[in-house]
Amino acid sequence: MPDWPDVQLHVVTGKGGTGKTTVAAALALALASRGKTVLLCEVEGRQGIARLFDVAPLPYAERRIAHAEEGGGDLYALAIDPEEALLEYLAMYYRLGRAGKALDRFGVVEFATTIAPGVRDVLLTGKVYEAANRNARNKGARHYDAIVLDAPPTGRITQFLNVNTELAGLARMGPIKSQADAITSLLRSSRTVVHLVTVLEEMPVQETADGVAELREAGLPVGGVVVNLVRPQDLDATQRGELLAGGVDTAALTTELGRVLDRDPGPLVDVLVAEGRDHAERRALEDRQRAVVAGIGVPTYELPRLPGGVDLAALYELADDLRDQGMA
């Protein structure tokens, strides 16, 4: 059974370089493999989803990009553009159709999304809220069982998700306050969780721990931690201990290699032992960081480092891993 059966909105964040977008895409595919209709959103304008799924750059429109053969769910994607979101907001809540386009021509939209503090993040989270709260009144709009948001990095995630609370404090009444309150209610509800992605290195792990603490302090729901790019476990604990202690029997290793090589294996033995020691040291570092992750006190999941990189086939493999571990 999945760990988050009642969650509709999965927010995925992580320090740059940890594979945040890859994990978000794999999670979306895993949810689709459960038979769900899923929307995968990005808000940073990098078109990372399009590159991962090898499709054309995403417009400001919900486009189907994958179908899960196992489970039968569909995956849609959306690149949320703040200027387009503002025009849609004006048309939806203020009936400013042509007038909204006129504002765009005069540069008002650009002003609102680049200069006015917090407006850009309000519009981005507002579009996610709209997709999560469609009902029979939204004629022709697609209903999503789950939404995965490829969100800003860990260092900015609390501010990004909490911006509507700040806006509601400034706007004491009226439709702006109502919208901000509604979005905040969704982001703080049991329908939402924030997952954090890290790798087993000191700085990303510490930033993840700090991010969890900040989210909790802000009253935002923390989900799980995904440890990405985990190296294969090529050596057991005994072998690693021998390498770290310098206790490898190089004479026996030289003899064994000499039976299969037609040259002196001595130089090769030295290289192998040195690489083995580096691997053991790296594993020891990773084990210490894994213990720190475990101490955060949330469910953890691990995804392997794939030697061939990440393509569409690899995404499905990672999605299977997340589903098997219960994240989706």
Rank of each mutant, 00 (worst) to 15 (best):
G118L: 05
E110R: 12
G107V: 04
Y89D: 05
L29N: 04
L39I: 13
V109K: 00
Y60N: 01
L27G: 01
D81N: 15
T21M: 03
G97Y: 08
L123Q: 01
A68Y: 01
A112S: 07
D121H: 07
L52T: 07
L40V: 11
M92H: 14
M92Q: 15
E70R: 11
F106S: 11
L29H: 08
A112H: 03
I49R: 04
E130N: 11
R120M: 04
E130L: 06
R63I: 12
V43I: 13
T114S: 15
R95T: 08
N133Y: 14
R34D: 14
G100N: 04
T114P: 08
K127C: 07
Q47Y: 07
G35Q: 12
A131R: 13
L31F: 15
V43W: 00
L90H: 04
V55C: 11
C41S: 12
A102K: 10
V23C: 05
A24P: 08
A99H: 05
I115K: 11
T113W: 03
P59W: 13
A28C: 10
Y60I: 01
M92K: 15
L52F: 07
K101N: 08
F111I: 12
G73N: 06
L90R: 05
V122W: 00
R134E: 13
G73M: 10
A131F: 06
P57Y: 12
F53G: 06
R134F: 09
E69Q: 14
A25K: 08
H67E: 14
L27I: 07
P117N: 00
G100C: 00
A61T: 10
I80M: 08
A91M: 02
A77T: 04
R105T: 02
R63E: 12
G97Q: 13
L52A: 06
L87V: 08
G126I: 00
A131P: 02
N133V: 12
N135P: 02
F111N: 05
A112D: 01
A28R: 09
Y93W: 09
L39N: 11
L123I: 08
A116E: 12
E62V: 07
R98F: 06
T21V: 07
V119G: 00
A131G: 00
L87D: 03
R134P: 10
L90Q: 01
G107H: 09
E69M: 10
